[in-house]
């Protein structure tokens, strides 16, 4: 960092204070919004998670009772945790698929921009609508997936995708990947385009085979894009509430219950806001840990954040 000399003008005229004042007032609007709609609610949940409270009764101090119940007695919590982690585990496959598509689209093919637009078109859609579409595709009688499977003779009786305990979660993950893959592809595509071409020429001159080029040049340089995709993948897996809400409502049983749908159900379905608050805090800490892990895995720097000119 640059060194700061000590000067003797009164604090309010010093250049540094004017800078801070400027920075503060520029940061104010965004910080205010995040403070009001993210930090304060999080702290509200934190405070609430140590109390017994329902809308009309005064709050009573509960100590760690809520947390004890989450970890010891609530098996729906563990089920939704494993489901959420299954979503996170699906992210690398989606990223790998997106990388494959990005590599294909990145080459000097004629219609590359058309392909890119088509693959990306699913991202800006409303997940409520995507949920309806995929719920209809998976339908036992009128759905096209069952129709294709049956006419291809792969299966005799239609598979109740969203009603069966073992197919429901993979089906929802496929729908979520279908929506998000375009965004991953774009991020990876832009990462690929920022790789300086002369590296490839040098490598091919030395006779390095194509797959080695990919392994030693492209992949390392894509690290920050991969990190960004990983973070978005983690966030998506914990916040794809609308898709689950429309497609399966967390069913059958709790087979597709995510942490966030469990929070919503305990909070509003069973009017237990204190318990839902404790779940929120647990989820927040889990997300923090996961992002920190992804950050470490992507080589220490915060990936897309702190490579300013400092």
């Amino acid at each position: 960092m640059n060194t700061r000399t000590r000067s003797f003008t009164p604090w309010y005229q010093r250049k540094r204070t004017r800078d801070i004042a400027l920075v503060a007032c520029f940061l104010l609007p965004s910080l205010a919004i995040f403070f009001l709609y993210r930090i304060l609610p999080l702290l509200w949940n934190l405070v609430l998670s140590f109390e017994y409270w329902s809308p009309l009764k005064p709050a009573k101090f509960a100590g760690l009772d809520q947390y004890r119940e989450i970890f010891l007695e609530d098996d729906v919590f563990w089920q939704s945790l494993t489901n959420s982690l299954a979503f996170v585990a699906a992210a690398p496959f989606a990223i790998a698929l997106a990388l494959g598509i990005a590599l294909l689209v990145n080459s000097d093919l004629k219609g590359a921009s058309v392909y890119r637009a088509i693959v990306f078109i699913s991202y800006p859609l409303m997940s409520v609508a995507v949920g309806i579409i995929w719920k209809w595709l998976y339908d036992e009688r009128g759905g096209i997936i069952n129709y294709a499977l049956r006419s291809a003779g792969l299966v005799t009786k239609p598979i109740p995708f969203l009603q069966s305990f073992d197919y429901a979660l993979p089906s929802v993950i496929v729908a979520e990947v279908w929506q998000v893959i375009g965004f991953y592809m774009i991020i990876l595509l832009t990462g690929l385009q920022s790789v300086p071409p002369h590296l490839y020429e040098a490598a091919s001159v030395d006779g390095v085979p194509r797959w080695a080029q990919f392994w030693r040049i492209t992949l390392p340089l894509l690290r920050s894009s991969l990190f960004l995709c990983a973070v978005i993948g983690i966030l998506n897996s914990f916040t794809s509430f609308d898709l689950i809400y429309v497609m399966t409502g967390g069913g059958p049983g709790h087979a597709t219950e995510l942490l966030v749908t469990h929070i919503y159900k305990t909070g509003f379905g069973q009017t237990r806001f204190d318990y839902a608050a404790a779940l929120t805090v647990v989820q927040f800490i889990l997300l923090l840990a996961l992002t920190w892990l992804a950050n470490r895995a992507a080589g220490g720097n915060a990936g897309a954040h702190d490579t300013g000119r400092a």
């Binding site: 809308p55 009309l56 919503y264 509003f268 379905g269 806001f273």
Partner: peptide, 12 residues
């Protein structure tokens, strides 16, 4: 499914 959500929020 949304009536409880709306009612609880109004209650709170």
């Amino acid at each position: 499914p949304e009536l409880p959500t709306f009612y609880q929020t109004q209650l709170a």
